Each structure stands twice: as structure tokens, then as C-alpha cells.
Simulated scan of single mutants.
Amino acid sequence: MTTTTFCRAWSIRRADGLTLGFTDHDVTVRFGGLSYRPDHGMTARALVQGSGLSVDNSEAEGALSDDAITERDLLAGRWDNAELKMWEVDWSDPARRRLVFAGRLGEIARSRGAFRAELRGLSEPLNAAQGRVFHPRCSARLGDGACKVDLAGTALRIERQVLAIEDEVRLRLAEFPDHSGGWFERGTLLVLDGPAEGLGGAIKNDLAIAGAGREIELWQQLGTSLRAGDTVRLTAGCDKRAETCRMKFANFLNFRGFPHLPSEDWLMAPQAGGNRG
């Protein structure tokens, strides 16, 4: 590979499968079934890689354009954690190429019609804490392999059309009397159709209003506005307490907490809460 035919190419793939390719060459480069366009959609800055398990460090930046990476999609979170690969490639013979980076997009900042995204290498997950946490509350996520609750159950999931939206975070739905107020708090909302299809959010409050339907409040807006008539799916929430696991989900056998641990006050001064006899 010579410097006269050297260029960079990078592909970025969203969770929904949409894949884009870009290059810093002045013509389109094609390999691996993808076309890498000489577009302003994205450029990559100098790459820093460690020889050990340190986190790779780099940034990607570019202009927000209607036919590539749009501000609307970034705000909606459609590019969050997107998979990114970068090659050094001989544009005269694309078969002669070398993969120099593989990872995902991290934190994304937007300003004045452009974006800047942190690139996180494959070693990034190694920074996560490992092992179990000894705590009275459950360490599993509702519905995961440790919890084993079937979220497809009719009591835990429901689909309804949005009747009205207020302040982008409060949704009015029809009544569903089989579920008491608060049933979906700490749960999730997923949009099934409309402009925000595929986006989801965490539920802050679930209020049953007598004669006025149900009000669901999200912790933050979705990025793409919901419309009246859009269909959403609500999934029940869990506060990680042993009592909730037993009474709400009938799943205490799979509880992953330690509800009988003594309190911090007892650990600091055991004689205050125990028998002295």
C-alpha cells in the first residue's frame, strides 16, 4: 500500500440495520458490499490506541445533512451506540485494506449544524464492574436471564393508542382498569408506529384518573414527537424490592438480592439493634 493511493474509509451501522459508508477520498470507494462516499456526513480524527487493555480513544465529527446523519435522528437517539469500523484502504485496489478501529459511538454532542461523537473501542466494556453486588434490592433487570420473568405476559405488557400529549412527556391513554395506578412506573414505553416508531423511554409516573383515563409521564421526551393516534407498548416496572418480586411478579425464587442483610446502622453499631443479654 503506497501513500499515493492511501485513504481512510469508515462504516457506521445503526441498531435498526441502516448502514452508511464514508471516505476521505475524492471518489466513491466500494468493498464488502458497501459504497463509501466522499461525503461531509462524517470524518474521523486521529486515532489513539493502547497496546494493552486501555480504552481506545478517538472522535468522529461531521455536518448534519438530510441524506446522511440528520439532527432529527441524533436527537431521537437512533445513532446511539451505533457500530463503527474504520479501515486504511488502497483506493486503487480496495482488496488491499487494513481494519484499524472497531467499536461503537459513545457520547454525541451537537452544535451549529454539526455533531461530534466519541468513539469507544472494543475494550470499553472491560471498564464495567464485574461480579455480584450484595444489596437488599435485586441486581437483575426485569425480564433478563437472571430474573426469568416472561414480559410477554398480558398482565405485564399492554398496547394502547395515545389520545393526547402534553409537554412531550405526559401521555393520555384510555383506561385499563385491570392494572392499578403505578403498575407501569419504572417500566418502559415503546412506540410501535408513527414518526417516533422504534423509540422508547423510561416511565416516571403512571396515574389512574377516575373517569379521565390513564396518564403516563416519561422521565424525558423521546426526541421525535409523538402524535395522537400513535400506538405505544407499556411494560411493567420493578422497584427491585423483595416484596414487589413476590407479590407483583410471583418470582421470589429468582430474586437476586439479599433482603435479610442487616442495615447499615446495625453494621455500624450492632449492639444498638441486637440483644445485649
Rank of each mutant, 00 (worst) to 15 (best):
S111R: 13
T4F: 15
C245N: 08
G50L: 02
L267V: 13
N254A: 10
P94K: 04
P259C: 09
L53N: 10
D93V: 06
M268I: 14
L151T: 08
A68H: 14
L18D: 09
I216E: 00
A129V: 14
F176H: 12
I158D: 12
R241C: 09
D206F: 07
E215L: 12
E124R: 13
W10E: 06
H135A: 12
V89E: 04
L267A: 13
A9S: 07
G106Y: 01
D206V: 09
D26K: 09
S111Q: 11
L163E: 12
G17T: 02
V232S: 07
P94A: 06
F115L: 04
A242M: 12
G187F: 08
L192E: 07
A128R: 15
G277S: 13
A44R: 05
G41I: 05
L99T: 04
L75R: 14
G237T: 06
L226E: 05
L122N: 02
L253T: 13
C138Q: 05
L142Y: 06
E107D: 13
L156G: 01
L192S: 03
F176R: 07
E215A: 05
V55R: 11
G131M: 09
I209W: 05
L151K: 07
R98C: 06
L47N: 00
P259V: 01
G201A: 12
L189C: 02
P136Y: 07
D193F: 09
L122C: 03
R276Q: 13
G17S: 01
Y36V: 03
C147L: 02
E215G: 04
I209S: 01
D193H: 09
T23R: 04
F249S: 00
E168L: 15
G229Y: 10
P94Q: 03
L218R: 09
R256Q: 15
R116L: 04
G153S: 02
V55L: 10
V100M: 02
L267E: 10
A76E: 00
A117G: 07
A269F: 10
D56K: 01
D230N: 12
T19V: 13
E59Y: 06
L99F: 05
S65P: 01
G200I: 00
D239F: 01
A208E: 11
S225M: 08
R13Y: 00
R96F: 06
R112K: 13
G131V: 11
I158Q: 11
R276T: 11
R160W: 06
G50F: 07
F6M: 12
A44C: 11
D193R: 00
D90L: 06
C238W: 06
G274D: 03
A128C: 08
I165F: 05
E264A: 15
G200Y: 06
Q161W: 09
E88P: 01
W183A: 08
T154F: 11
E243M: 12
M268C: 12
R141L: 14
E197I: 14
L53K: 08
A212L: 12
I209R: 11
A196Y: 03
R160I: 05
F184K: 03
L75K: 12
G121P: 05
E61R: 00
N251K: 03
E175H: 07
D73F: 00
E159H: 02
P262V: 14
E124F: 15
